[in-house]
């Protein structure tokens, strides 16, 4: 069973097409790494896949309740402790495995600490641990390794491998080499929308004026 299948997809940010003619599928156990320069539309693509914004063209075939999205912001409440933050998301998504998620991301010792007392990397680890408690099959991750040290990137890759082995899938937008050798790499540069690529047309003029 295919987890996610995209055909002829075009996405837009602020009314401007950024990527078009995208075709790919994601099977259980697969990871897809999205690459491309800043501003190409990686975040827009992930937000569209997550259902936060509509696709301009083409189809996304996926169970709407199968995706979990991890954005640049971690969605943590600084007044709540690490465990309270995770438990909230587990209850909202109807998932479990809080203890397992904490130990996998090396957060067990920080479990009772309020989130405002965490370092940037620790917050990021907590934000990624949230994916585990959602119980969702497809993880959409936007620059998951920002502010993580090498050891934490290792933990993250281990977490993703565990998820893939359990039949899940992952779409990861990243600029660094994760060391996830089995993942497919999709370079988005050839899919850049024509209007923005040629630099002509009304849309591009608007972009120049207000961008």
């Amino acid at each position: 069973m295919t987890l996610l299948s995209v055909s002829g997809l075009a996405v837009a940010r602020g009314g401007l097409r950024t990527l078009e003619n995208l075709n790919f599928t994601l099977e259980p156990g697969q990871a897809l790494i999205l690459r491309g320069p800043n501003g190409l539309g990686k975040t827009t693509l992930l937000r569209t896949l997550a259902g936060l914004q509509p696709a301009v063209d083409g189809q996304i075939a996926a169970d709407p309740d199968s995706t979990a999205y991890a954005a640049h912001a971690d969605g943590l409440k600084s007044a709540l402790t690490v465990t309270e933050n995770l438990r909230f998301w587990a209850e909202v998504f109807g998932g479990d495995g809080i203890d397992q998620a904490l130990s996998l991301m090396n957060l067990t010792e920080l479990a009772a600490r309020p989130a405002h007392a965490l370092s940037a990397g620790q917050k990021r680890r907590l934000g990624l641990a949230r994916l585990m408690v959602t119980g969702r099959a497809v993880w959409l991750m936007d620059e998951p390794t920002v502010s993580l040290d090498a050891a934490s990137v290792g933990l993250f890759v281990q977490m993703v491998r565990g998820h893939l082995a359990a039949g899940g899938g992952a779409v990861i937008a990243t600029h660094i080499d994760l060391g996830l050798a089995e993942a497919r790499v999709l370079d988005l540069t050839p899919f850049k929308a024509a209007a923005t690529r040629s630099g002509t047309g009304r849309a591009a003029g608007f972009n120049e004026a207000f961008g």
Binding site: R47, G51, L52, Y69, A71, H72, A73, D74, G75, L76, K77, S78, W89, V92, R130
Partner: peptide
């Protein structure tokens, strides 16, 4: 803090 995106 991004929770609204996640809640959506």
């Amino acid at each position: 803090d991004g929770s609204l995106d996640l809640l959506a």
